[in-house]
Amino acid sequence: MSNKMHIKLNVNGKEEEFLAEPRELLIYTLRERLNITGPHIGCETSHCGACTVTIDGKSVKSCTMFAAQADGKSITTIEGLGGPDNLHPLQEAFKEHHGLQCGYCTPGMITRATKLLEENPNPTEEEIRFGMAGNICRCTGYQNIVKSIQAAAVEMNASKEAAE
């Protein structure tokens, strides 16, 4: 076993500090150490996107990053996007448009979609399909996921306009 490292993360706005082996993968840090079980494990080989979180403004598959690499960074998971009293428009839209079935891909899917809409607030269907291609869903066939993201985009743009 190697020396443990002192690691500091900001997860969903909360500072976390702990000692961990360098080989600890970020997904396990989140799920097992910090009990943040929204991000899931679907493949462990960086293909499925179930483990997607946002790290310093990038969508990242947390099964393919060591916690040590994330030392000093800010991480947002599905839990940080919205809760019972303040759902994120994407969370609302996935519910409204049946954008999920078993729910296993959903946290990664929604987390990735927040970033997609940040970069492209008015995506076409094609842009959504391309921009979400790092996230696999086995249940929905994607059609309602696309619909949910489109609906959330409209909603978010409307509230942005209203705020201006």
Binding site: V60, K61, M65, R112, A133, G134
Partner: peptide
């Protein structure tokens, strides 16, 4: 190349 998440890294 790959997908959006991989391209960030």
């Amino acid at each position: 190349i790959a997908d959006p998440q991989v391209r960030y890294m």
